[in-house]
């Protein structure tokens, strides 16, 4: 079994750091073009047109699309057969080095500071920064690195709902979050709105964030019931008469993604996350043979991620 070279992982991490900051994902840009086709209000149209022009300028100049370059973080999906050279400690070191280097070379804004002392390394690296989350994939020998540069201040909220609150409770909290952060455009909408339902409080937050940041515009949840809820919420969000910057309009939710986790029988925790007009994500699949493929769809939520029962059939068991 061949190892995945440390330098190759470092190089891939550096490349996706730059791509995420500069290149708006195609699914998101196409989604905004679609919204512009529907939007009737002049001020809201003006904002969407300015954003389309901005993304062209960013790619032409190789300049970050937004100067609030967010708080860079990484998602690592490791094939069950993958072996990074130097182990996962070396991979984490490569990811941290790439973050510091890209902060200087792109350049990114050094956003990360100590929460109490406001100490600033000017490189977006520090205690628990960048965050690195892991998932695994059966029958694979590659490692996928995804970086997300999500803005950090507005557009996210959490609430403990209860089963009796039902769909009304979900819809109300969804509206609460959109309205409170939508006025004046604090959430930098239209946004991909990610919703985490269930799990514990932290699981609900994690799933909602991943739903917003790691699924492309136009891809519904494979569960038809959840896909129906996603469509309903998107429709609801685009009919509150509010658009970009809180101006009168209809462009609020470019897409809505819901992810679920089994939860306490008495509760229904819910989180809402808005991934903004600079929906920065980029992925590299690094193969053991040395090839690297780049893309903007992280493909994070695989059937394995959403498995519902104890086991997962291995390749041997399936072919037996």
């Amino acid at each position: 079994m061949s190892e995945i070279a440390r330098d190759l992982l470092h190089e891939a991490a550096s490349e996706i750091m730059a791509r995420a900051a500069i290149e708006i994902p195609r699914d998101y840009r196409d989604g905004i073009r679609g919204m512009l086709g529907q939007e009737q209000h002049e001020l809201s149209r003006f904002v969407l047109e300015a954003m389309l022009e901005n993304w062209e300028a960013a790619e032409a100049d190789r300049r970050a699309m937004c100067a609030d370059t967010g708080v860079p973080r990484f998602y690592v999906k490791a094939g069950n057969e993958a072996r990074p050279e130097g182990g996962f400690v070396a991979l984490e070191e490569a990811v941290r080095a790439a973050t510091a280097e890209a902060t200087r070379s792109v350049p990114l804004r050094p956003n990360r500071v100590h929460p109490l002392w406001r100490t600033d390394h000017d490189n977006n690296v520090g205690i628990n920064a960048p965050e690195i989350e892991y998932s695994f994939e059966p029958d694979a020998d590659w490692i996928e690195l995804t970086t997300v540069h999500k803005g950090g201040l507005f557009g996210t909220d959490y609430r403990m709902l209860f089963p009796a609150d039902g769909m009304d409770g979900i819809k109300r909290f969804f509206l609460d979050t959109l309205v409170q952060f939508g006025r004046r455009g604090l959430a930098c909408q239209p946004a991909i709105v990610g919703i985490g339902l269930g799990g514990s409080k932290d699981t609900s937050m994690t799933l909602g964030k991943q739903a917003a940041c790691l699924r492309p515009v136009g891809e519904p949840n494979p569960d038809p019931g959840i896909a129906k809820l996603e469509a309903e919420l998107k429709e609801l969000g685009n009919n509150i008469g509010m658009g970009p910057m809180g101006f009168v309009g209809s462009s609020m939710v470019i897409d809505c993604h819901v992810e679920v986790g089994y939860t306490h029988t008495g509760g229904m925790p819910m989180s809402v996350h808005c991934f903004c007009l600079s929906s920065r994500r980029a992925t590299a699949r690094v193969h053991a043979g040395g090839e690297v493929e780049y893309r903007s769809d992280p493909r994070w939520f695989t059937p394995y991620m959403r498995r519902e029962t104890v086991g997962w059939p291995t390749r041997l068991a399936r072919t037996a």
Binding site: A50, A58, M65, D68, C188
Partner: peptide, 8 residues
Amino acid sequence: VGYGTGAL
């Protein structure tokens, strides 16, 4: 405008 017309 946007927000996030950082490149412009």
